[in-house]
Design a protein around this nucleic acid. Structure first.
Lengths: 213, 213
DNA sequence: TGACCTTCGGCATTTATTCGCCTATCGTAA
DNA sequence: TTACGATAGGCGAATAAATGCCGAAGGTCA
């Protein structure tokens, strides 16, 4: 459901007001700003916006207007249209038992740097060797081709030209390295740097819950 | 079904208008822009575009035109943003101690469905309440606004209008639901469906290891 | 109490829908 | 070749619905 001209003006004013004041405007303030003589009119606009899921409010609570996800999605959608940055609106934080703090101006989760990175590829993870780092069977790791890695990085490593694994990398000094699985059932691997080829560094992990056709 | 020349002119104008104004044009405005003297003609174009799934609208609602997924597909094709730029090459699988099986024809990890999903937003996870499902503090969850969820789905739930949490959803029958944290230190929450508002369903989890400016 | 939100009936304006009819183009069957 | 039907594009006018708006009265909350 899309907005009408007037509804867009109303919600833009509310967003602007919340952004500058930190709290939502009263109906009277909205009316004054938009040249509406009757609060009934304001109320109707608010109700329409709430019904269209652009806005949330609590009944009979003063200054309880909150922008809903829908509003930010529209914003980011129009951003993504022409610009070269592709992003997802980042609406805030969520924690057990704490309300979502919806920021007045949301951040964005930028994905375009992944999509533009020529040296990036994905691998599907099999097995539980990184389970203690919460990388599970079936997850995708996004790997950047890179030879130089820092201690503690999760890397794709080719050992003795034979096998490729996903491990945490630690330089042991003296030309040797330790590849540390994140699974207490597994042993770290010690190799000389000569026998080790770092094929890439894990930049991110992606897990999908739904099957997409 | 492809568009005719005139139909493309119409939908391009609509897209442009929505992008600059934030709401859709009225039929009269479309007519004026395209030099059409009769609203009936505009209406015919709109109906054709809707039937070809480039456009959505609601009956008798003013300014309710919305661009449909179909339109964005065409757009990304023409902008050289073909599938490959919205996806990451998926080179194979990696497991502890097993070589990467590089498939002859690499798959792709498609991200464009995320970017095209107009109901998608992201939340940063705080706390450890989903740690047993390997969703960690600092991870991003990609959430689709959706009221209807299935048992076992991870959802963003608003409880009694007060607090929002991330939990697994289970219907207990009889108008009640159980919200199950994935942390053995925490208790499941039982609520009646009336006190529960499902704000979205988690489609994916993204964890970034590098700090991006 | 004062600031604020909600609801009602009614009126004006904006907007979408529908109907009948016209022209041009294009492929195909007679 | 001609005739025909299908499709796209177009016009004007009448209709109906949604939207926008008002003032006043009555709630609710801190």
């Amino acid at each position: 459901m899309a907005l009408t001209k007037r509804q867009k003006e109303v919600i833009d004013f509310i967003a602007e007001y919340i952004h500058t004041h930190g709290y939502s405007p009263s109906y009277e303030e909205i009316g004054k700003a938009l040249d509406l003589a009757s609060l009934a009119t304001v109320h109707k606009h608010i109700s329409a916006l709430e019904q269209k899921q652009y806005l949330r409010r609590s009944y009979n609570q003063s200054r309880s207007l909150e922008l809903a996800p829908r509003y930010f999605q529209e914003l980011s959608r129009s951003m993504n249209m022409n610009e070269s940055t592709l992003s997802i609106p980042l609406l805030g934080q969520i924690a057990a038992g704490v309300p979502v703090e919806t920021p007045a101006m949301p951040d964005c989760l930028i994905l375009s740097d992944f999509l533009r990175n020529e040296n990036l590829y994905a691998l599907r993870v099999r097995g539980e060797s990184m389970i203690d780092d919460h990388i599970c069977d079936g997850d995708y790791v996004l790997v950047e081709r890179a030879a130089n890695v820092k201690d503690g990085d999760i890397v794709v490593a080719l050992i003795e030209g034979m096998e490729t694994t996903l491990k945490r990398f630690f330089s042991d000094g003296g030309g040797r390295a330790r590849l540390q699985p994140a699974n207490s059932d597994m042993r770290p691997i010690n190799v000389s740097l000569e026998d080790l080829e770092i094929q890439g560094r894990v930049l991110a992990v992606l897990r999908r819950y739904t099957i997409v056709n």
